[in-house]
């Protein structure tokens, strides 16, 4: 169980507020995602929870231990995989793993069952130095090292940043299996599409939590009907849509633009299409869609700024 109560931290003598009054509750055995863009404060929250950083205000506990008073107990209990690869580059896979096992007073053999599936994939290279591994292998090794002492809570800071799509998919499957072992997992990611893989997520922006819920609930709570629209001239379409007074917001998503109407009724789409046609747009297609987490994120962001 992890809990944060009104946690704040600022850098540069208060000039930059990295985390601003964050409160969160994460249940035991939960796979929890912290979703937000770069600089939202994700890493700061992780560093506070792993006792690497002292919060300016607020109380945070991990497994019931206070991050300030009981930091020694927390360090025994948690596994942490920082966003930047930070194992010994000049030690081999085996040596890194053994080293981190021994400092936790355990051995690789004792916990092999937990990491076997991941370790087997890098085992053929076990005498290779960590610095010479590929990105995906480094990430697997880092996960093994974070798990080697059978932590009750696992903190993964942007584990999939810079990793290819296939490895990312594999990685999330591994996380699900670890969750089934009863390990509480807190993971952060800037990729919105990974949000749906978590049980519950918190959307974070500028150090503030915008919402906390399950991904499905967050999508359900999306307050407006959402449409995807495309034409032959997407760039012109975006400007025209943004200039259109009946449109509340318009954002580019891959091959479509996602739009929300200001006052939606049955006529809205028809009127919009007519107007766009008169401006010379061809091949217009509009359809109602279910929002993605990214839509929700943008909508919440606009709300907060508006």
């Amino acid at each position: 169980m992890i809990s944060l109560e009104n946690i704040s931290i600022s850098y540069n003598k208060g000039q930059i507020k990295a985390v601003d009054g964050v409160s969160l509750e994460i249940q035991k055995g939960e796979l929890f995602g912290l979703i937000g863009p770069d600089g939202a404060g994700k890493t700061s929250i992780f560093r506070i929870l792993t006792t690497l950083l002292l919060p300016d205000e607020g109380i945070a506990t991990v497994d019931g231990w206070d991050v300030i008073k009981d930091f020694e107990n927390i360090r025994k209990e948690v596994g942490y995989m920082p966003g930047k690869f930070s194992l010994y580059q000049d030690l081999s896979i085996e040596e890194n793993l053994n080293f981190f096992a021994t400092v936790f007073n355990t051995s690789v053999e004792e916990n092999m069952d937990l990491i076997k599936e991941i370790y087997d994939q890098i085992a053929p290279f076990k005498t290779r130095r960590a610095g010479k591994l590929s990105g995906g292998m480094k990430q697997k090794l880092a996960l093994c090292c974070a798990l080697i002492h059978r932590p009750s809570v696992l903190f993964l800071d942007e584990p999939t940043t810079g990793v290819d799509t296939v490895s990312r998919k594999e990685f999330w499957e591994m996380l699900k299996r670890l969750k089934s072992q009863g390990i509480t997992i807190m993971v952060s990611t800037p990729y919105m599409d990974e949000a749906t893989l978590c049980e519950r997520i918190a959307l974070i922006q500028d150090g503030k939590i915008m919402t906390v819920n399950s991904p499905d609930k967050i999508i359900e709570e999306f307050p407006y009907p959402l449409f995807a629209i495309k034409s032959d001239h997407m760039i012109q379409l975006l400007t025209d849509l943004r200039e259109n007074p009946s449109i509340k917001s318009c954002n580019s998503f891959g091959e479509n633009h996602h739009i929300i109407f200001k006052n939606f009724d049955e006529d809205s789409t028809y009127q919009l299409l007519e107007k766009l046609k008169s401006k010379g747009h061809q091949g217009l297609v509009i359809s109602k869609i279910t929002p993605t987490i990214e839509d929700c994120f943008i909508a919440l962001m606009d709300q907060n700024h508006g």
């Binding site: 690497l52 360090r75 948690v78 942490y80 920082p82 930047k84 930070s86 194992l87 010994y88 090292c145």
Partner: peptide, 10 residues
């Protein structure tokens, strides 16, 4: 950055 990893150990 290895010091980070060391710091979260006992």
């Amino acid at each position: 950055g290895t010091i980070e990893q060391i710091n979260v150990t006992p």
